[in-house]
Simulated scan of single mutants.
Amino acid sequence: MRVFLWVVLGFVIGVVAGYFGTILCYVVSSDLFKTHDQDGGGAMTVGFVVAPAVGLVCGFVAAVLCGLRAARRRKP
Rank of each mutant, 00 (worst) to 15 (best):
M1Q: 08
R2E: 01
R2H: 02
R2N: 02
V3L: 06
V3K: 11
V3S: 09
L5S: 09
L5G: 13
W6C: 10
V7Q: 09
V7G: 07
V7R: 10
V8A: 11
V8T: 04
L9T: 12
G10E: 14
G10S: 12
G10A: 10
F11E: 00
V12S: 13
V12A: 14
V12F: 13
V12P: 05
I13S: 08
G14T: 05
G14Y: 12
V15E: 14
V15Q: 07
V16A: 15
G18F: 01
Y19M: 07
Y19V: 08
F20N: 02
F20S: 01
F20H: 04
G21T: 09
T22D: 06
I23E: 07
I23Q: 09
I23Y: 04
L24C: 06
L24V: 08
Y26L: 00
Y26T: 00
Y26W: 09
Y26I: 00
V27F: 04
V27H: 04
V28I: 15
V28Q: 08
S29P: 03
S29V: 09
S30Q: 15
S30P: 02
D31F: 05
L32F: 14
L32S: 11
K34N: 12
K34R: 14
K34I: 01
K34V: 03
T35C: 01
T35M: 09
H36Q: 08
H36I: 10
D37E: 08
D37S: 07
D39Q: 02
D39I: 01
G40H: 07
G41L: 14
G41K: 10
G42Q: 12
G42E: 10
G42S: 15
G42D: 11
A43C: 06
A43R: 14
A43F: 15
M44S: 10
M44I: 03
M44L: 15
M44A: 14
M44G: 04
M44V: 05
M44R: 12
M44Y: 11
M44F: 12
V46G: 02
G47S: 08
F48D: 06
F48C: 05
V49C: 01
V50L: 13
A51Y: 11
A51N: 05
P52C: 01
P52S: 02
A53T: 14
A53S: 14
V54Q: 01
V54C: 01
V54W: 04
V54L: 05
V54N: 01
G55H: 13
L56T: 04
V57W: 12
V57N: 03
V57S: 10
V57L: 14
V57M: 09
C58F: 14
G59E: 03
G59F: 03
F60L: 11
F60A: 06
V61T: 01
V61G: 02
A62K: 00
A63I: 03
V64F: 11
L65A: 10
L65S: 10
L65P: 00
C66G: 02
C66T: 13
C66Q: 07
G67N: 05
G67T: 03
G67E: 07
L68D: 03
R69K: 13
R69T: 12
R69V: 13
R69L: 15
A71Q: 13
R72I: 09
R74Y: 01
K75F: 05
P76N: 06
P76F: 05
P76V: 03
